[in-house]
Amino acid sequence: MTLPVPTDPQETAPLPVTVSSAQTAVADMRATARWTVAATAAVGGVLLGGLPFAAIGKLHGGGDLALAVGGLAVAMAGVFWVIWATGEVLTPRFVTLTSLDGPGLAGLRAAVQREPEAFFGPFGASAAELDRSCRHHTQTAARIARLLVTETDDVRRARLTHWLGVARSNAAHARARRRALLELVHAWQVRATLRRARIHTLLASLLVVAGAVLFLLATDGG
C-alpha cells in the first residue's frame, strides 16, 4: 500500500517577506541624517559662495583680511565637522551576532537579558545558541533530504518527508529570528551613531557661529 506523502510546509506556507520596524527605524534615522547633511552643505555654500565676495569692499588692511579669512576657515571647519559626523550614520555597516557585545548596545543587551524568549524564541537564550540552532536545523534538513533521495519504502519516505518539512520549518524560523536580531542590532548601532552625531552637530554649530562672528567683526565698517 502506498501512503500519501505529506506536503512540505515550506512550499505551501512560506514565511512572509515583511519590512521590520527595525528596518523602518533605520530608514527614518538615515533620512534625518541626509536632511542634516543637506542643510549643512547649504550653509557651507552660502559661506563660500556669497559672503566673501560681498565683503571684499569692507576689508581694510591685512589685519581685517586675516580675521575674515580666519573666521571663514573656522566656520567652514564647523560645516565639514557636521558633514563628517553625520555622514557616519549613512555609512553601510557589517553586522554579525557578535556585534551585540559592541559599544553603545548596553540598552539592547539589557533588554535581551530581561526577555530572552522575546528575541530568541525556542532557539536558546543567547545569540550563540540561536546561531547554533540555525546551523543544527539546516544540517538536519540536509541530512533528511539526502536520506529521502535513496529511500524506496513508501512508509519511510512519508515519514522522512514529514520530518523534512519540520526541519525546514524550524530552520526557516530560526533564520528569521536571527535576521530580526541582526536588524535590531543594526538599528541600535545607527541610533547610537546618530546620537553622537547630534552632539557633534551642536559643538560644530558653535564653531560655525564663532567663525561667522569673526568674519563679521572683520567686515564691520573697517
Rank of each mutant, 00 (worst) to 15 (best):
V69K: 05
V69W: 03
G70D: 08
G71P: 02
L72W: 08
L72M: 07
A75Y: 06
A77Q: 07
G78I: 05
G78E: 08
G78T: 07
V79D: 00
V79N: 03
V79A: 11
V82M: 09
V82P: 06
W84Y: 15
A85D: 02
G87I: 01
E88M: 10
E88F: 12
L90G: 02
T91H: 12
P92D: 09
P92A: 05
F94G: 03
F94L: 12
F94K: 13
V95K: 10
T96H: 04
L97C: 01
T98H: 11
T98E: 15
T98Q: 07
S99R: 00
S99D: 11
L100R: 03
P103I: 12
A106D: 15
A106M: 13
A106H: 06
L108V: 02
L108R: 00
A110T: 15
A111R: 13
A111G: 07
V112D: 06
Q113N: 12
E115F: 09
E115P: 04
E117P: 05
F119Y: 10
F120D: 00
F120C: 00
G121V: 08
F123H: 02
F123Y: 15
G124Q: 00
G124P: 06
A125C: 13
S126T: 06
S126Q: 11
S126M: 00
E129G: 07
L130G: 04
L130V: 00
D131P: 04
R132I: 04
S133V: 11
C134N: 12
H136K: 15
H136F: 15
H136N: 14
T138C: 09
Q139C: 06
T140K: 14
A141W: 00
A141E: 01
A142M: 10
R143Q: 14
I144E: 09
I144W: 03
I144L: 15
A145Q: 10
A145C: 07
L147V: 04
L148S: 09
L148Q: 09
V149R: 02
V149F: 03
T150E: 11
T150S: 09
E151R: 06
E151V: 05
T152E: 10
D153W: 14
D154C: 05
V155L: 15
R156N: 12
R156D: 10
A158Y: 04
A158Q: 02
L160R: 02
T161P: 01
H162L: 09
H162T: 10
H162W: 15
H162S: 13
W163A: 07
W163H: 14
L164P: 04
G165F: 03
G165C: 04
G165A: 12
V166C: 10
V166A: 05
V166I: 13
A167C: 02
R168V: 13
R168L: 11
R168K: 13
N170P: 03
A172P: 12
A172W: 03
H173E: 09
A174I: 02
A174G: 06
A174L: 09
A176H: 03
A176D: 04
A176Q: 08
